[in-house]
Design a protein around this nucleic acid. Sequence first.
RNA 1: GCUGAAGUGGUGGAAUUGGUAGACACGUUGGACUUAAAAUCCAAUGGCCAUUAUGGCCGUGCGGGUUCAAGUCCCGCCUUCAGUACCA
Length: 984
Amino acid sequence: MKYDFNTIEQKWQDYWAKNQTFKAENNSDKPKYYVLDMFPYPSGAGLHVGHPLGYIASDIYARYKRHQGFNVLHPQGYDSFGLPAEQYAIQTGQHPAITTEENIKTYRRQLDQIGFSFDWSREVRTSDPKYYKWTQWIFIQLFNSWYNKAHDKAENISELINIFESEGNITVKAACDDNVPLFTAKDWKAFSSEEQQRILLQYRLTYLAETEVNWCPALGTVLANDEIVNGVSERGGHPVIRKKMTQWSMRISAYAERLLQGLETIDWTDSLKESQRNWIGKSVGASVTFNVIPNATRHPINGSHKIAVFTTRPDTIFGVSFMTLAPEHELVSQITTPEQKVEVEAYIEATAKRSERDRMADVKTITGVFTGAYAEHPFTKEPIPIWIGDYVLAGYGTGAVMSVPCGDQRDYDFAKHFNIPIPNIFKDIDISEEAFADKERTIIANSGFLNGLNFKEATRKVIEELEKIGHGEGKINYRLRDAVFSRQRYWGEPFPVYYVNGMPQMIDEQYLPLTLPEVEKYLPTETGEPPLGNATFWSWDTKNNKVVSNDLIISTKGGAPDMESHNGVYPLELNTMPGWAGSSQYFNRYMDPHNEQEIFSQEAVNYWRQVDLYIGGSEHATGHLLYSRFWQKFMFDLGLVPHDEYAKKLINQGMILGTSAFVHYTIISSPELNQKFYVAIQEKDVVNYKEIVEKHLGDTNLKDAKFLDLYEMHVDVSLVNASDELDIEAFKIWRPEFKNADFITEEDGTFKVKRDVEKMSKSKYNVVNPDEICEQYGADSLRLYEMFLGPLEQYKPWNTAGISGVHSFLKKLWKLYFDDQGFKVKDREPSKASLKTLHKTIKKVQEDIENFSFNTTVSTFMIAVNELTAQKCNSKDILEPLLILISPYAPHIAEELWEALSHKESISTALFPKFDESHVMESTKNYPISFNGKMRFTMELPLDMSKEAIEEVVLANEKTQEQLNGRTPKKVIVVPGKIVNIVG
RNA sequence: GCUGAAGUGGUGGAAUUGGUAGACACGUUGGACUUAAAAUCCAAUGGCCAUUAUGGCCGUGCGGGUUCAAGUCCCGCCUUCAGUACCA
């Protein structure tokens, strides 16, 4: 019988689906294990061979855990809201829901053919109203919460209102906006309802505020910091500018410290944790307040102003020789003197015009301008000139710095450039060339009460003094900014929000989900509103078939919208939520995906608790993986989840890259020619291509024609064979403009292309489709090969040629069970050698899987099968457990052979075989004997021999004596089980 | 600049944590089977030298060091990839 993989794989995929083999129950006597993949965005291009890598790894682990007797949850779903479907809709008018549905079908078919053990009964889709109902629900919970720093957790906003009513906000320690005014309980009660709401908004965990955002004109939407790469949009590479807009934001900064601390408790890779630490960017220092001197110049400044700065070096405060404000700083216009006004305004305008990218590009150019104003040094009372400069960022700290040129290189450069004095406050340090920033070696001088102190002592002392005079305090600053949560797009979750007098109100939970309305066009409206502004009606309560008009929402009764009485007309929020909204809690929803009453039941979440193993790409380090941790901590504060970290262990799979092929060519044109003439050149001839083309053309009529530069183009990799030779005829059909082209080939007519490793993408024609691989070699071969390619975490190029190795392994495996005569496994006593092979394989496989070293496991299988073939093993006692070992990697063939061994149940119910050391034990060990560190021969010795006995035997040995040649050994080293080394 | 990861044959990659470097696989070469091809099987395959055979020397990015013994540990460099970037 032949190994007919296509039939076998189809058979078992159908069997698994029909019998719901991998359906997980929310209770079991078995211990639980939760294996999660990052769910895919279903793109129109379908899967290429790089996509399933992580899924194969997690599937192997999930199947392995089932064999270990665990109740395994291994779900899958789709992150189905997103920009590509919307852009496709803009171009074609096709509703994103339809293209998304089609793409999901393709994905599902492709995933199914690889034989994953997903529990599809738990599938979620972020664009499904039944799912995004709960995304909207979480948004409402965030809106109704504030962060109490005293308890270090989120609490209900009603508790904050209680405090305001009894004591105002003076005693409240909350994560809130910086500019909240202080008020008493009496003040609070005197505020209008609208004023109260405005104040509460400054405390809520999701809030509406006018913020400076990253606006991408080409995409017509704002972007979060992690969606910008090198100053351009991550998607499409469009320029991004800063713009002030009223937007929803998430107060993730409230959780900065807990997000940082939580990293200590989870088993994620160091590099990923490090990225998150950098992104959070904690720095410890002090905030210092400087008073602006009202009449330091002929033109007194109106009112009294204070400038707060954040510094990590308060110990250098006596080295301050100027201050610098960001051009966007709000005080700039108030303190600038009339003489400086023109210059300052020109400077502000010039900086505002520069895009983020330009600003990043020339960080070396020093620019700035003097405001004319002075601040007073809190200790020396000396006047300090106030400058503005674009090296100070409005978005970090307070947007103002105290400049200490002797201790900070940027301040130093700025001072040098504008001839500002650079006082030296460091003992025995030369600062004539550059600033001195080494905290460890710092001894303060010329600094009054700080003289002689080191960095630590001086910092403590100066903070103490600042607090005494009310000019500052110790402070911790984080780089992490609140996350902008509004997107001006159609294909995303609508906000459950409407506005009364411009103040946002939450739609009552009973009316969720607020479903996405139909629109004619997916572009912004003519008045510049987001695409949702095009909707003519909204339908929300699908159960009761209630419909409301576009910008109308029905009046409220006691804060909740009342569907029955049509008393008022209020606009709805027209923005939608960003891509990361739907992916920030999906892992918990899988635990109880069909629950319509709650986001998930407490029974379910207390059973599954945490994700035990999460596999996905590292590109989400500062996006999804940070936001989802934030939401989990929030859910924990609400008492909804038992852990405030949702994923115990995380592995980043590396990317599988494509091997692109390129053809070089030049185009010849001359007046005599009607058309352009292409000449393709092999890579080796590229350097001297002009000479070679001329020589090639010889005396033809093209001889005197001019030819253009050399071009390089991607060639479809399917037109190139394993030896990099191009199929020229097929190429000419693929690219008709080359129909009459000349190819400068080898003498034997072959034409070699250039190869390069790049990301797989349609536009590079280097995509390898898993469908073809499954068709030609089978899913088991694909699974094994993807693992065999190299370590899971590593980036590695795909090369289809190598798959024949794993494929012939499967054929050899098959032959252990079936030959031409049929099934050949017998119920007979296994040989000692076969038992040894089996048990050393059990041990190695178990160790490898537990270390996620999947590539070496495949080698282990190959060695085992080769050995058993050589041993002519046909014993059931060996071949049956062997299948269980291989089954996580190649489940289809394992099921088929398992069935041939007369099993009625799926192999997934079988328990992993136990390793028995006695079969592997050897009574003797080969000791390598070396002289002066060089290995000369080996000698078999019993395992239980003592060091001394080994030494004696070795020295008495004939070969040893030969090597020693009459000399007496100086030293003999014996490490039992390892090596004997004799120093002559 | 900073942070993290990594440099091993023609190629992908192994190496029980300091103990015979190159497992396993691809590729290549030779052979068997076949009218032929495919498939399958066998053998060789880091480099150099020697050869009738046994063999010898050099080899894990570079330069040092520790050790009886270093791909692995220490010091100093170089290169590549990824993330981040005027963060006060």
